[in-house]
Amino acid sequence: MKSIFLQTNTAIWALLALATVLSWYMGSDAALNIPAAMLLIAFFKTRLVIMHFMEVNHAPLGLRLVCEAWGIVCCAALIVLYLPS
């Protein structure tokens, strides 16, 4: 039973929690509030959820590509739109 908890996904959860704390800290510090960096962290987190929790890393290539495209297009569009700040 213990082995169920000791899996890669538990490390992924810890990484996601750590990234949340990091972006939370960056969000509260004016000097560190860099939109592009924070967007990259957010979409890095969504990618971890999609690939590991949703098991897309074991899915056929088509589904993987659609999911990767979603993250890349959304992240790139947001970075461009946040440039004026």
């Binding site: 004016a30 939109p35 924070m38 957010a42 979409f43 969504t46 949703m54 947001l78």
Partner: peptide
């Protein structure tokens, strides 16, 4: 069901960043 639940999670990750954090 699990896939749907993870989607609810991942959409919130982006909403949290753009609504609450990024200035």
């Amino acid at each position: 069901g699990a896939t749907y639940w993870h989607m609810v999670d991942l959409l919130w990750i982006v909403l949290f960043s753009i609504l609450y954090l990024i200035k």
